[in-house]
């Protein structure tokens, strides 16, 4: 009797899991469809690669691209948590970005993040109270003004790595998220970078540097990630992606992927 019951339960559980997984798969498809596809990115960027590896079916990491006559916006975001909660927040983030960029404001990277923060705080009803959710988005966002050969960058806890003439520079982000800040929300900084053709830029979530190694049980770390970028930056984007991907899998080995992973590289 007990055995029959157990079998029945396991069948029900398996069925529920199956339904659940198929929902997640579908959700994953939806999430992916909200992010720009390769052909769109190829159209607006000279070259690019995206290493996007959700920990689960759906991801808290997302990448974003938008273009109009005057400028192109590229962003890589990392929502707190992963899985479904992260994915929901990422979808909010994408829709907020769309909303903001469709207004007629002059595009300023920091203003986009300022407005995005208002929207996230509004949506999550964050008012600086102790009991409320502290969910937020970390994001690196670039506004490329091709006619001026300028990239504006603003970062919420996520930096921008830039390689120009073989020299790598990191543009530091503001140490605050898109969401309620620990003490006070201040304006994000707008970095204005003069660029030229062939310059390469990298934005990434913390999933890659935070990944533990099977062999050493240590994190990959940002320092090594920078070295990796520096090492591969001269290569073609496809090769860069392949190398970054293979290094990640080698490093991780058979350990669990700790977080969603997103590495995005592009050339102008």
């Amino acid at each position: 009797m007990n055995k029959e019951k157990k079998d029945f339960d396991s069948v029900l559980f398996a069925q529920a899991m199956d339904e659940h997984l198929s929902s997640l798969r579908y959700a994953s498809m939806i999430q992916r469809s909200l992010m720009p596809d390769t052909s769109f990115l190829s159209g607006i960027l000279k070259d690019h690669f995206i290493f996007y590896l959700p920990k689960d079916y759906v991801s808290g990491d997302f990448y974003y691209a938008y273009q109009n006559a005057g400028y192109t916006v590229i962003a890589a975001g990392d929502c707190t948590g992963h899985g479904v909660p992260g994915a929901l927040l990422s979808i909010l983030g994408i829709s907020f970005l769309n909303e903001i960029l469709q207004s007629r404001d002059i595009p300023r990277a920091n203003r986009i993040l300022n407005r995005m923060r208002e929207k996230v705080m509004g949506a999550l009803d964050q008012r600086g109270q102790d009991y409320e959710q502290k969910d937020s988005i970390d994001i690196a966002l670039c506004v490329y003004e091709s006619y001026r050969s300028v990239i504006q960058f603003a970062g919420a806890n996520r930096p921008l790595i830039m390689v120009s003439d073989g020299e790598m520079k990191e543009v530091k982000p503001d140490k605050m998220p898109i969401g309620i800040a620990p003490f006070e929300e201040v304006s994000f900084t707008n970095h204005r970078i003069e660029v030229k053709e062939g310059d390469r830029f990298y934005m990434f979530s913390d999933g890659y540097p935070d990944q533990f190694s099977e062999e050493t049980n240590k994190k990959f770390k940002i320092k090594n990630f920078r070295q990796l970028i520096d090492y591969v930056s001269g290569w073609s984007m496809d090769r860069q992606k392949a190398h970054i991907e293979s290094i990640f899998y080698d490093w991780k080995g058979r350990t669990v992927q700790v977080d969603d992973v997103l590495v995005m590289g592009f050339e102008i």
């Binding site: 007629r104 404001d105 203003r111 300022n114 407005r115 923060r117 208002e118 929207k119 996230v120 705080m121 509004g122 949506a123 999550l124 009803d125 964050q126 008012r127 600086g128 309620i180 006070e184 929300e185 201040v186 304006s187």
Partner: peptide, 28 residues
């Protein structure tokens, strides 16, 4: 210009919140 619906719109939302409303509530 059209983004200025009234005088308070001359301040950014952030400044309006911090300096006028003194609130941290997100304004969308």
């Amino acid at each position: 210009p059209e983004e200025f619906v009234n005088a308070e719109d001359l301040l950014s939302t952030l400044d309006f919140k911090n300096l006028v409303l003194k609130t941290r509530q997100g304004i969308t």
